[in-house]
Design a protein around this nucleic acid. Structure first.
Lengths: 262, 262
DNA sequence: CGTTGACTTGACGGAAGTCAAAAGGTGTGG
DNA sequence: CCACACCTTTTGACTTCCGTCAAGTCAACG
């Protein structure tokens, strides 16, 4: 097992981690080490490193301790979506997303290095619009994945299906593929089961429930959201994780297709 | 609701999606449209768009239909981790990861545009090593999130905890923070419950089970994996999703710290 | 030595899983 | 155009894994 850094190098957990997939030139290693030279902050156990909704300007890298990504639901439930160990970055999303859609919590005493915002600005300027678009796409996908973890961990069958349907409605709406809150959704109940972590039988029963409540209709491979407000409520849906910019007063440079749904 | 593209523009679902978070210059819009001009492939319903383990060279963008990210477990269970609608990219991971760790499946008849590999190569060359490192970090985090979804959807309490512990062992090992398969892990059982989507009571009982089987020890905030092979089996753990490069014959430029664990 | 937070135990309940069979659609080929 | 095969949806009876509630133990700490 060959170590690619000199014997006397400072311990750099980020390098250690990234070396599992690539090798770095001496200069890149130096640049990685420079990142570690920034300001360090110690967060005592059970304190918040980054708050939900915070607009972060510099990236936090865990250098010692243990942290977690977690999200609080309005009913008090909490879901931890990931643990962060030394070498993990807490908030790469600052590159492209407006605000955090979850919080970073110190589990044990945790030390972070702040990667200064000018390093980030530099990276952003050297990025093309397309690259930024791809970043956003990736980040936003990751946010959807986290929401799915919450679904599975803390929502029951009815809420899970309602949440999935409501999310699909918004996503179809955004790309202009809905009419009147209905859209083609050619999934079998077995596929819904595989997506929600349920069994086909239970999906069937839950669909009947949602239909009976007048929330949805699902015929001929077309899903109709009969009662969007009701479905949103049934799903305990909160739209922040989708990271859509909302139109503000007089603002017209961002397209708002999700509209009243969020 | 103002449309930022000219009336006669070709429908571009990727643009439609990205416009929810940013606005583009006329030139960027043109570049986005050029991406759509590439080769199109039609995948009939229930066919594989990209196979698990495939080494993809160009990015697939869904332009019509419905696809899904899914993963088959060795026992035949399947978990769908995400649905892909028009405007969604199937495999941005080709930028930095070796091979797909899940498959992309056409749910209904689905049309994709292939974004040619030279566009990708161009983006890669304009990226610094640091940017690529950040990409890898993001992609790899997303892969871990997907695995967590599988945990919650298709594994029971014992497997879920075992899987979490085994993953943490590898991740701590990689950054050099283990000794003898033990590492500090100062989580309470309540936090484990929040991470696994279980209740503290059930976590407690399941931990006792794992202890009784001689798989783990968990004392004084230190987790010891007493029987790594046994724990790996109990977790039905497969390491591909971590995307570590393995050392091949005579190769010494990549560090392999996970070693025998994967 | 009382308070606090984490862990443990027991009894009970319920949401979702399992198994199995029937009913309803859909496409294909004779 | 009917018949057959096949897939999907539906229904019913029964089971189980995990949740809930509540009480009790234990260690740490001021």
């Amino acid at each position: 097992m060959l170590q690619s850094k000199p014997e006397n190098a400072v311990y750099n957990p980020l390098t250690a981690k990234l070396e599992q997939f690539t090798s770095f030139t001496a200069e890149e290693l130096k640049r990685l080490d420079q990142l570690l030279a920034g300001e360090r902050v110690l967060y005592p156990a059970r304190t918040t490193i980054i708050a939900d909704g915070e607009k972060v300007t510099n990236i936090h890298l865990v250098v010692s301790g243990l942290a977690a990504r977690s999200k609080h639901l309005e009913n008090g439930d909490r879901q931890i979506m990931a643990f962060l160990v030394p070498g993990d970055l807490c908030d790469v999303e600052v590159f492209v997303l407006e605000a955090m859609d979850h919080e970073i919590l110190a589990i044990s005493d945790t030390e972070c290095v702040l990667i200064p915002s000018d390093v980030i600005k530099e990276l952003l300027t050297e990025m093309s619009g397309l690259t930024k678009g791809l970043w956003w796409s990736t980040m936003s996908d990751a946010a959807v994945l986290r929401e799915r973890i919450i679904d599975h961990g803390r929502r029951n069958a009815r809420e899970r299906l309602a949440h999935l349907f409501y999310e699909m409605l918004i996503r179809y709406r955004v790309v202009g593929q809905t009419s009147d809150n209905s859209f083609p959704f050619a999934v079998t109940q077995e596929e819904l089961a595989d997506a929600t972590g349920l069994t086909p039988v239970h999906v069937n029963r839950t669909l009947q429930e949602l239909r009976a409540e007048g929330l949805i209709e699902f015929r001929n491979k077309v899903l109709t959201i009969a009662n969007p407000r009701g479905l949103k409520k049934a799903a305990r849906f909160e739209a922040e994780y989708l990271h859509f910019k909302r139109l503000e007063e007089g603002q017209s440079d961002v397209v708002d297709r999700a509209g009243d749904l969020i």
